[in-house]
Simulated scan of single mutants.
Amino acid sequence: MTAAVTALPQGSASDRNSLVKPAGLVMLVVLLVALCFLSVAVGTRDVSWAEIAAALQGQVSSIGEAAVAMRIPRTLLAALAGGALGLTGALMQGVTRNPLADPGILGVNMGASLAVVIGLAWFGMSMAAAYVWTAILGAGAAAVFVYIIGSLGRDGATPLKLALAGAATSVALSSFTVAVVLPRNDIAGGVRSWQIGGVGGATFDTIQLVLPFLLLGFLISLISARKLNMLALGDDLAAGLGEKVALARATAGVGAILLCGATTAACGPIGFVGLVVPHLCRLMVGVDHRWLLPFSALSGASLLLLADVLGRVIARPSELAVGVITAFIGAPFFIWIVRRQRVREL
């Protein structure tokens, strides 16, 4: 009798727990939609609801409607880029089992940035599609380089060695980028503005260009969720359970590189989103990547939209680039993680 009585509340608690994650996902979707409306409505110029409604219907007869029409692609790009960066951070942390893994900290952003700058300065790159491919190749080369350097020596690729290799590589690539740009006054201004990271110049053409790469990256990432759960058990145990460890890492890595490279090509190197978001999402849903990845994508999109709106409001009538806002948020968070986690494995 006692067992039967205690079984009921346990089952009820289990049912409640099984509803928490889907409910949280729905809440994040609602928050994302609300932030999209906020992003369209708020800016350096005040607009009325009538102008917003008219602009959403394609009308641009007034200055307010034109302002809203310019914010629409900006909002879409911010959501896509934030989702991609949040997802990339979760993937990189899962692949490396490193709580400090992030496209910026591991040098992947700077690899993409340097590749684009070299293409502009030395090869006269002008085709829009070439920017995306070049950024993806640069991101991939930087990721492979950091992982190889971090794997040298005893104990292989430990979280601390990867973080140090990524930080050193990021500084070196940043210096190379400056060296390439300095003699080229014709591109220096545009490159410096792009390197801050922002979504202010978004257009539908830009979104159409990077969207296939982002969608492919999202698909590969979600397919990798189960593989990342296996990797979290440790390489030996994952291999013992039949998982091909190298292939699992490579698959998730390709998804991360596609997402990071395409985002960097469109927005510039935006840092810390991939670091902050996965940690916050683990507090909500735990370490199961089947939930962590979609939560990270939605949370990253929400964070970047919020940062973009704050950048417009704080510096009115001017704007702060979204990369500046995310750096203000992420830098203290990075210090907190280092102090709390002591750079141990996930």
Rank of each mutant, 00 (worst) to 15 (best):
G201D: 14
R74E: 08
A256I: 00
V338D: 07
A165Y: 03
G24Y: 02
C281M: 10
A321L: 10
M92D: 03
A256E: 02
A250V: 15
D102S: 00
P9E: 01
L173G: 00
S62M: 06
S299C: 06
S18N: 15
L215M: 07
G300E: 00
I105W: 12
G156E: 04
I149D: 01
R340D: 08
A239F: 03
Q341V: 03
A168E: 09
G197S: 08
T206I: 07
A250E: 14
Q93E: 05
L137K: 10
P332Y: 07
A41T: 08
V40Q: 10
V199K: 12
G234W: 13
G138H: 02
R342S: 01
I72T: 15
R74P: 05
N229L: 10
G197M: 14
E243D: 08
I220C: 05
G323M: 06
G83W: 04
I196V: 01
A315E: 11
L137I: 10
L120V: 15
L222D: 06
G82K: 11
G255T: 14
L259Q: 06
V210W: 10
V181P: 03
L77I: 03
R192S: 14
L38P: 12
F204A: 04
A69T: 12
T96Q: 05
V68I: 03
A301H: 01
A128S: 14
A188K: 01
A23N: 01
T44W: 04
G200I: 08
I223E: 11
M125S: 02
S14N: 13
V144T: 03
P99Q: 01
G11R: 09
A79M: 13
L28E: 06
R344Q: 15
A121P: 04
A50E: 11
T2W: 12
M1K: 10
L31N: 02
V199M: 04
S151W: 08
A179E: 14
G11M: 07
A256L: 07
A331C: 09
V146E: 04
L310D: 08
A112F: 12
L292Y: 00
R249D: 03
I257W: 11
R16Q: 08
L32N: 04
V199R: 09
Q195M: 14
Y147Q: 08
R342V: 01
I337V: 09
L160N: 06
C267L: 02
T6G: 07
A84D: 00
P332E: 05
M1H: 14
G140A: 10
K161D: 06
W122S: 13
A248R: 05
K244T: 09
R45N: 10
I223Y: 13
M127S: 11
I52V: 05
A238Q: 07
I207C: 11
A202I: 09
T264I: 09
A84P: 00
V47L: 07
A265T: 08
L346E: 15
A139E: 00
G140W: 13
A3F: 14
W49Y: 12
T177D: 10
L32E: 06
G82P: 04
M70K: 15
P9L: 01
M70E: 12
D102E: 01
G89V: 02
L292R: 02
S296F: 04
G153L: 07
G156W: 05
